[in-house]
Design a protein around this nucleic acid. Sequence first.
DNA 1: GTTCTAGAAC
DNA 2: GTTCTAGAAC
Length: 372
Amino acid sequence: MKKIVCHVLQCFVFNGNTFCSRYITPAGEMPVCFLVSEDDSHKPIQLHHQQSVTLGRGPQTRIKDKKCSREQVELRADCNRGFITVKQLGVNPTNVDNVVVGKGNQVTVKPGQRLSMVNQQYPYTVKFTEDTSTPRSAAELSKPSKRAHRMSSEGNGEKIKSPANTTSDHHRMSDDSPPPKKTLPSGSDKSESAGHWSQGLKVSMQDPKMQVYKDERVVVIKDKYPKARYHWLVLPWDSISSLKALRSEHVELLKHMQRVGDQMLQQCPDAHKLRFRLGYHAIPSMSHVHLHVISQDFDSPCLKNKKHWNSFTTDYFVDSRDVIAMLEHDGKVTVKEGTSDLLKLPLRCHLCRKEQPTIPKLKEHLKTHLPS
DNA sequence: GTTCTAGAAC
DNA sequence: GTTCTAGAAC
């Protein structure tokens, strides 16, 4: 077997993702792409540069599972840039690194990432090699592995132990890389465009390096600017812009989000000595519903101003159970008038209610409440 | 959401 | 003089 050697010539970063503009083989020829069955159930399938291939249940993949459509995915390799695009055509979920692609959506898959054809089953990876002779088996291209689900022992969730070590990216893209310069559809507002700061969570939640837990309904990321020693965000995969968009049908999802939040505490080494709250900002700045799971020490350099403080220590912060109760009772979540004014209230300790004149003084005061 | 900074507060 | 905040810009 020939060694797989790919030399990256140029890389650039977009939205925190690194894109390699061209892979060059030692001979200077364009690499060849193979889709490799991770459980070695059939020979690697060659994907020709920029030629679409539809795969699913059938003799080529030897998948007989009826849940898998005969046309489950459309694949297209970019041998120059070293990735393939995967479009889910079938109804049942195709996953990339356990993240659902979604019917009609298209994502990229790079070497090192795992594509599961349907329902977290039938795993594949992509390989780029200078060798044009089709290898006989996956074992020749990669370490053999058994066809199996990657599920945790508790339910369907997956705990991601070392998110920092994850080198693969998963980003939703609508066409070939490099990422296109954003062209806004006519009439669209810049403030709602994908690159706007308020859309940042949508980007972060898709980034495997940010994810600390995910299952079929939600993903958990660490808050990028934690306001306490522990600060996670639980986000649904479903795009729900804010509390305003919630309806009765979301009750189960919100209960699941709370359960997942509670699960984060169970694996937190300091959960026994810190108090936590699970809740939502009544008027969030960031788009996409997110449940804050935050320890009540508020011991963090990212907590810098009155807005930060009051957003977590006044009624601006609504307990998860209250949101769920409201949704069950009224079928929607309403925010009291004047809630935004709460952000301007004087700085008051959430534990002893003592007022503090400035943020630095408040932070000094908070130290007196820290567990020893 | 964050960063930056003018000017208020001390 | 320094510290800190609030609001604009992103």
